[in-house]
Computed example of a mutant assay.
Amino acid sequence: MALWWISVVSLAGWLWLLLGQGFFWRTDVRLPPPAEPGVWPSVCVVVPARDEAEVLPSSLPSLLAQEYPGRAEIFLVDDGSTDGTGGLARQLAERQGGLPLTVASPGEPPAGWTGKLWAVRHGIALARARDPEYLLLTDADIAHGPLSLRDLVASAEGGGFDLVSLMARLRVAGVWERLVVPAFVYFFAQLYPFRWIGRPGTRTAAAAGGCVLLRTSAAVRAGVPEVIREAVIDDVALARAVKGGGGRIWLGLAGDVHSVRPYPRLGDLWRMVSRSAFAQLRHSVLLLAGTVAGLALVYLVPPVALVAGLGSGVWPVAAVGGLGWLVMAGTFLPMVRYYGLGGWWAPLLPFTALLYLLMTVDSAVQHFRGRGAAWKGRTYARPVGDASSAADPGRRP
């Protein structure tokens, strides 16, 4: 009877997620309708880069080759690289030509700044000397189609948006990437439904840091990047700052913007998720416990109920568990298809959710061991004033 009621609650949860969470599972949220301006606004592209020599030859040329009708230039900020990232960027620009490229270095970040945001601050300061109407903040591992910048600006102009962000397609070449990556985007959309983000009057705000077109005036009005200088999950913090300052924002799935960074081993993906998972929970033990319980109830109960029901001959339990698993796989299928994978990957979501549950717990363990939010040789402590379970258990993630 206990398993019966638990499986019923799990199924009810899935029916609510299916219909009441902004249709997060749909993958048709693409760039808003464009409007080509009579005079194309100027754009400065800011690329923070730390030890990116491995991926830069696959990404930077795509920025240099942008077919943009207005004035555009690139500022690559070398954030203390030790692998020759800055020199390689100059070589690529000299070899290919295209948009003007400036390579600069801000030095080590001062206390109270993450390395990436210190580099972004430096890049924005250089860019603002050119008085651009827009800033394109993009990561060093992101490759853009030749019309990417043009399409982003046209959509921002057409919709009157202050921030337009695309969730870049991540690489899904290996088995572990195929198992973990689509679920990463699926979980993100479940937490921040894209349709709610672009709707005026809603509190939901998020962006995808790999590709963010930001109106300069909105950045100034929101105090970006200074106001988010300690944020580990900087893209969500950026979107909240812009929307909180009265700006209109939009986030959707990309067509011709993709990440070239490989994650061939489970350990690579594990570190990608675990380095910021506990920060997403505001370093709160109570939120961690609730997240673990929620993941287990929603993702693990349906297959457990199906197997237990079949094994014990309790068919109602098996039926409810099977139906919950079916709804789960059905909501995941569009994301699986978006990544060009076969439909048989969709029923594997419970196993992937278990991996994410373990990654989240590991993120908390690493935090309490003093190794949380570690990335490329830097470890970031919890920001001052961040919620903890004792200080602010009710603060929303």
Rank of each mutant, 00 (worst) to 15 (best):
G87E: 14
W14P: 10
W40Q: 07
I74R: 00
V185M: 12
P393R: 01
P146C: 09
G159N: 13
V298T: 03
G87W: 05
P110C: 02
V181W: 01
Y299N: 11
S148G: 02
R195L: 09
R271L: 08
A387L: 06
P334N: 13
G394K: 13
A93H: 04
G98H: 08
S59R: 01
R337T: 00
W14G: 03
A219W: 00
R248W: 13
R195Y: 05
V8M: 05
L19R: 07
S274F: 01
E67I: 12
D268T: 15
V45I: 15
I233S: 13
I74T: 05
D386K: 06
V285D: 10
V55M: 12
V46F: 02
V181A: 06
R30W: 01
Y356R: 04
E54M: 04
L31C: 09
S148I: 02
S388P: 03
V47S: 00
R199T: 10
P397A: 03
S363F: 12
M359W: 15
G324R: 01
T85V: 11
E133N: 12
F351G: 13
V77G: 04
A318Q: 03
V242K: 01
G246R: 12
H283W: 04
L341K: 11
P393D: 08
Y134A: 05
V365F: 03
T291E: 13
T27S: 11
L341C: 04
R271Y: 09
W40Y: 15
L269V: 07
G244W: 14
C211T: 14
S363V: 09
E133D: 10
V384R: 15
R271P: 00
W345E: 05
L253C: 11
G112Y: 14
A183E: 06
G290V: 03
G372C: 03
A305N: 09
G22K: 02
L92D: 04
G309Q: 07
G313V: 12
T27D: 08
L152C: 02
E94Q: 11
S284A: 08
D256R: 12
Y68T: 09
H258T: 12
W375V: 01
V180H: 01
G159I: 11
D28F: 13
A279S: 12
V336M: 09
A374I: 02
R171V: 13
L92N: 01
D162E: 15
A390Y: 08
A296R: 08
V307K: 05
P146F: 05
F187G: 01
A390S: 13
G210P: 14
L306E: 04
M1I: 09
S389Y: 00
L18D: 04
G324C: 11
R229I: 00
V43Q: 05
V47Y: 01
E157T: 06
L306K: 00
V257Q: 02
L341S: 07
E73Q: 14
P34Q: 14
A254Q: 01
W176K: 13
E54H: 08
L349V: 10
H144I: 03
A111T: 01
P69M: 09
A156R: 03
L63A: 10
G115I: 05
H258Y: 15
Y338C: 04
W344G: 07
T114K: 13
A104T: 08
L213M: 04
